[in-house]
Design a protein around this nucleic acid. Structure first.
Lengths: 212, 212
DNA sequence: GCAAAAGTGTTGTGTATACACCCATGC
DNA sequence: GCATGGGTGTATACACAACACTTTTGC
């Protein structure tokens, strides 16, 4: 899957209302599951996405007129898949560039943009990059991922410094072969943890004596 | 109202289940209101709290067994009231120290702690202090508020520096008279904005050339 | 004058960005 | 050799915490 662009999986509605528009995958909550179990089930069943590297609640969308007919309350999620995973998705679903969204159904555009912003913030103060990257990667590949997600060119030098200082990068010892045009072989790294962790907890007003 | 301690308004349940335990104010969502309108209505109707300086969604709590009987999905909120506001609350409600919570109903303890953590983080990277403070205040009064919310002693010197550097503090020109034991009269300040704003947007990996 | 409280000056330190320079490969 | 891409060394900026010091009051 392309990794130089931030993308979202959308599903083309086959029924009214908003027939033909693109919408986020999801569905009704069953009485015996919580919301996270539910969204994981929907993604597995409906779009065959199972390899989520991170899932977190975004917000509740509940405006009375957000969908036609009886009001529907939606709990929106941010779900991430590593860049090397390309799930087999059904014919009526497609990955869309978040910066060039098609016409969406309901308030789904707003939800996608909210998810994008959440991802962007968390890339800065958590280790969330692990959820975007394959198990092993070069720093320049990681730079491409971060740049796509953040929307501006990140420096590979500084990315490596920041992540290393925070103890998030482990060299695997292996290297990746250079391309046809040469260049020094790139060292391969992996992330040290696998769950999300806040790595920059106190921007300011830290507790006294927390030498930082 | 006391301002040297972080407190939450709880309501003593008069009915089963969990009769006698303390629970968060709230109630059912009506079909014609969104969740924020709903929580504001509940607070106004049930506990007569109307002067909320900040309201934000926390998270959805949806475990199938979180309450006895049919499953109830709750959208939890963080709501703040300025320290000089002391709403007349009904007899069966009380402010409780967040660090010494009584036995709560359902998962309300977890919700309160989540709210506390959200407040603590946002005090560091947003201007959310405005929601805790009265319209005019001395730096040392503000220090007391921040210390109570964060759970450790904040330095008045550095608090003033940080907030000033970010352009959040405006001197009103007036001063507060010293206490019985003397001391230099404290200058009065107010916050410059009234809505919440992120003041420390890029902890790291900022866009190139954004000289900060 | 002295204690108390507020406020400013100053220093040290860690974290981050920017950029120059060195390294290893293909051709 | 030379171009290409990877990686390190180093300069600089700056935000923050810590603490010394000054200011202004009550008694």
């Amino acid at each position: 899957m392309r990794s130089d662009t931030l993308r979202v999986l959308l599903w083309r509605r086959a029924l009214d209302p908003h027939i033909g528009r693109w919408s986020l995958p999801g569905g009704r909550l069953r009485p015996d599951e919580d919301v996270e179990t539910s969204i994981r089930r929907q993604l597995a069943e409906k779009v065959d996405v199972r390899q989520l590297s991170h899932v977190e609640q975004l917000a509740v969308f509940s405006a009375p007129d957000r969908v036609p007919g009886p009001r529907v309350v939606a709990t929106a999620f941010l779900g991430l898949v590593p860049s090397d995973v390309d799930p087999e998705v059904p014919e009526d679903t497609e990955w869309h560039d978040v910066d060039e969204l098609p016409r969406t159904a309901f308030d789904h555009r707003e939800i996608v943009l909210r998810a994008r912003d959440r991802l962007r913030s968390k890339l800065s103060y958590t280790n969330l990059g692990f959820a975007l990257a394959p198990r092993e990667f070069t720093v320049s590949a990681l730079r491409t991922l971060y740049s796509a997600a953040l929307g501006y060119r990140v420096s590979a030098t500084n990315l490596q410094r920041v992540l290393s200082r925070r103890g998030l990068l482990a060299p695997t010892g292996a290297t990746a072969p250079p391309g046809r045009s040469g260049g020094r072989p790139a060292a391969l790294f992996s992330f040290t943890g696998n769950g999300m962790q806040v790595t920059d907890p106190f921007a300011v007003l830290r507790p006294p004596g927390s030498g930082r």
